[in-house]
Design a protein around this nucleic acid. Structure first.
Lengths: 133, 133
DNA sequence: CATAAAATTAGAATGATTACAAAAATGAAA
DNA sequence: TTTCATTTTTGTAATCATTCTAATTTTATG
């Protein structure tokens, strides 16, 4: 597992330090679209010297190298996702859970965007999830 | 014009004060998806006593009453739009312009969302616009 | 005019994020 | 192993958008 992460990081031009591996592992194991603080609070339990700045630095590096994406579904905290494939999100206003929305990518090939060069696509909804509805 | 705005505000349960009318007028005339600061800088030229807090209060009231929506396409500043119809946005990484994307709303009726009650939909892209491309 | 309610203001507080410079860890060469 | 340069990490301070709060001004009403 760790080794697979190391290879993935290296393949994307990221030196696989212990902290970086742990942050990436958190993202792919929890799949919970965490904020910086959520990652920090979890990891600091095992890495007492961890600095929140390191989590910021690491995530910004992941974004830059394209192995994670930023989600702006929460107005005051950035969320992160290691699933960089084209998909949407749903944030429940009741339980605050963020769901992944697998979607027919053909629906996202818009007509009038011919001349536009798209580098990022963001799609999300808010409302109530089945459990809270 | 002013009168039409007054009626619209009143119809949505908002007392049409001078400041509120001006903020709303800015939104519908400029159609530029402004930040709070952009609105403030423009209006303060004619209303020297204007406070930025008032712009914040006013926009939050508009959101609450449903006559404007928040756009999170800019990572560090919230943008606003008085067009509350379902449409997307495109932010050019070159000129920073935010374009409206009229889109086939049928494409946004996703399959697996049956049990979810949607109250907000957000769709945006980033990249290069035709001029900057 | 008087008075209560609502709107506006200014400044302080909050909180997420970034900047920065020092300290620690890493890795290669001798 | 030791040295030395490079990279990573750290802690603190700075930044900046937004909200809070309490005072002031404006508005509407009797």
């Amino acid at each position: 597992m760790i080794e697979r992460i190391q290879n993935l990081l290296r393949a994307n031009g990221i030196k696989p330090s212990h902290h970086r591996i742990k942050v990436y592992q958190y993202l792919i194991e929890k799949r919970n679209h965490p904020s910086v603080d959520m990652i920090y609070q979890e990891l600091v339990r095992n890495i007492p010297t961890l600095s929140k700045t390191t989590v910021y630095n690491t995530l910004n590096l992941f974004l830059e190298k394209g192995i994670a994406v930023m989600i702006t579904i929460d107005e005051n905290e950035t969320r992160y996702d290691a699933d960089t494939s084209l998909h949407g999100h749903f944030r429940c206003n009741g339980c605050e859970e963020i769901y992944d929305l697998r979607l027919d990518t053909s629906a996202l090939e818009w007509e009038s965007l011919d001349e536009f060069e798209i580098s990022e696509s963001h799609l999300y909804f808010k409302g109530l999830c089945p459990r809270c509805h």
